[in-house]
Each structure stands twice: as structure tokens, then as C-alpha cells.
């Protein structure tokens, strides 16, 4: 091959690559647009002057910020977003504290300690996981009712964190990867199991602690069905964000509150999506149980 031939060949390859790159970007852009259409519609509607559902155009004819003002400062008996936000925040904080403790305790014990009941307990946990959560929640409702706790925020904290110990597998996967040699060295130095847990393992477990806190903090924000079973009263002051927003779309209310629903959707989605995007790598570890490590 002569020098010029090689040059044309190289230029051709480069052209081909550039074309492929452009093609890929175009395909991805089309797909992304398709995927984001509902989200764009959500945001567009939150700025609409039209409050009802009878929308004839994708983008609103007139744009306004009134919905955002009304959402926070103009509450009524149907839409009381600040109160819902406050309720959900309280529930989320408390259930995050309790759940994180429970999950860390169970996963640590199951991962790093050996005792007779370990395997039976783990198998039992798997069996419990095969029952639909809704089923037990129906009975939990009766238990809470006899305790006079339904429609109380404490009830929500209890249901979100009480049996959180069952979700120990992700954290266990993390503890499994911490070398045993650390414990043994500490044991030789005379540390008790408690000291090893507190002073050796916990300080190096920050990633999994952060993950567990975030996951349990998010649960009350995104859960719909459990809150629906436990909160049976019609008093909107006791609602969580999810229940309140579901209620806004009631057949009789949707024509007045649809734009407000979209506004609330935007407001509540921003922090949640930010958290989610930030912790996506932890999240993946969680779902695949560390199998990405290969």
C-alpha cells in the first residue's frame, strides 16, 4: 500500500466512526425524549393556568407560577401539601433511624457471627419474604386498631421500620466482604465482640450505613400501598404525600386539582430524584447483592 492509500483508508475509518457516533447520539436522543415526555408534561402542567384535567394541548397556553404559590401558601381541606410534607418527613426520619439500626444489627450478626440458629433464621426469613407484604399489613392494621394507633404517625413509623430486619441481605453482602482478619487481630488484643462491632467494623462501613439510611428514609416518600391500608380516615391532615396526592385525583376532585397535583409531583420529585441519582451506584450494589463484583 502506498502512503496516500493508507491516508485515505485512515480518513475513511475516521469518517465511519464519526458517522457512527452521530447515529448513536441521535438514537439515544430520540429514546431519551420518548422516555422523558411524561416528565416534561408533568413540569409543563405545573406551570399551567388551567387547573383541571381537560387539557387540549401538550404545552399550556399561558404559563404561571400561581400553582407553586397555592401549593405552599393557599392550602384547603383537600390539598394541604405542607402538612403532608411535614408528616412524611417526620415518619421518614424516625423510620430511617430505627430501620438503619435494625438492618445493621441483623446483617452484622448474620454475616460476621456464627451461632446455632443462624441458618434456620436466615431460611425462615426467606420463607417470610415469599408472602406478599400486603397480606401481613392487612392484619397489622387490625393490631394497630386495637392499640388505637391507626391514623397516627407512630403507626406509619412502626410499619415502615418494625420488620425492617428482614431487609438485611444487602448490608450482609457488604459485611461479608470485610476481611475476617480484622476481627481476629482485635480479638487477640482482647476486644469484645461489641467493641469489634462498634470500633472496628462500623467506622469502615460508612457506605453501607449511608445506603441503608437513604433507602429507609426514601421508603415513606415512595410507598403508597401500606400507607393506604393503615390510613383509613378522611382527614387530610393525617395524610402522607403519596396518599394526599392520590386523593387529589379522585374523580370529583381531579377537575380542580390536576395542575396542583403536577406541581406537588414536581416539588416532591426533585429531592427524591436527586437522592436517587446520587446514590444509584449503591443502589445497584443493593439490588444485585454485590454480584457486579464478579
Amino acid at each position: 500500500m502506498s502512503v496516500t492509500n493508507i491516508k485515505t483508508y485512515r480518513r475513511n475509518v475516521k469518517m465511519k466512526t464519526t458517522l457512527k457516533v452521530i447515529a448513536q447520539q441521535v438514537i439515544l436522543a430520540i429514546l431519551a425524549l420518548f422516555w422523558l415526555i411524561p416528565i416534561i408534561w408533568l413540569i409543563a402542567n405545573s406551570f399551567s393556568t388551567q387547573t383541571g384535567i381537560n387539557i387540549r394541548q401538550f404545552f399550556p397556553e399561558q404559563w404561571t407560577l400561581d400553582n407553586y404559590y397555592n401549593l405552599f401558601f393557599n392550602t384547603d381541606t383537600v390539598a394541604n401539601f405542607p402538612k403532608w410534607f411535614e408528616n412524611t418527613l417526620i415518619v421518614a426520619i424516625f423510620s430511617a433511624i430505627v430501620s438503619t439500626m435494625f438492618v445493621l444489627m441483623v446483617s452484622y450478626a448474620m454475616s460476621r457471627m456464627r451461632f446455632k440458629m443462624r441458618k434456620p433464621l436466615m431460611n425462615f426469613g426467606i420463607i417470610l419474604g415469599l408472602f406478599p407484604g400486603v397480606l401481613s399489613m392487612i392484619a397489622v392494621y387490625f393490631i394497630l386498631k386495637f392499640m388505637g394507633l391507626t391514623d397516627h404517625l407512630a403507626a406509619l413509623v412502626i410499619i415502615y421500620s418494625g420488620s425492617s430486619g428482614l431487609g438485611y441481605l444487602v448490608a450482609k453482602g457488604f459485611f461479608d466482604t470485610v476481611p475476617k482478619a480484622l476481627d481476629e487481630a482485635a480479638k487477640i488484643d482482647g476486644a469484645s465482640e461489641f467493641m469489634i462491632f462498634l470500633k472496628i467494623i462500623m467506622p469502615i462501613s460508612k457506605p453501607i450505613i449511608v445506603y441503608t439510611v437513604l433507602v429507609s428514609f426514601l421508603a415513606p416518600w415512595v410507598d403508597f400501598v401500606f400507607a393506604r391500608i393503615i390510613l383509613t380516615s378522611n382527614d387530610t391532615n393525617g395524610f402522607t404525600v403519596a396518599i394526599g396526592m392520590y386523593n387529589m385525583l379522585d374523580r370529583n376532585l381531579i377537575n380542580t386539582y390536576f395542575a396542583l397535583f403536577c406541581t406537588a409531583g414536581v416539588v416532591v420529585s426533585i429531592p427524591i430524584s436527586l437522592l436517587f441519582v446520587l446514590m444509584q451506584s449503591y443502589y445497584v450494589e443493593g439490588v444485585t447483592g454485590g454480584s457486579t463484583k464478579g
Binding site: 435494625f102 450478626a109 426469613g125 410499619i159 462491632f197
Partner: peptide, 24 residues
């Protein structure tokens, strides 16, 4: 130590999952 670690979470699971499931 495992008893200390597990007792509260297991109690929670018994009250909020095991008993409700048997009940159902």
C-alpha cells in the same frame, strides 16, 4: 453478642410479620 443484636429486630419481625401472617 448476636443475641443482643438480634433480639429487638427479631421481636419486631415476630410482631409485625409472623403473627400477622399466621393470623391471615
Amino acid at each position: 453478642f448476636h443475641v443482643t443484636l438480634l433480639s429487638l429486630p427479631v421481636l419486631g419481625i415476630i410482631i409485625l410479620t409472623v403473627i400477622p401472617l399466621i393470623f391471615m
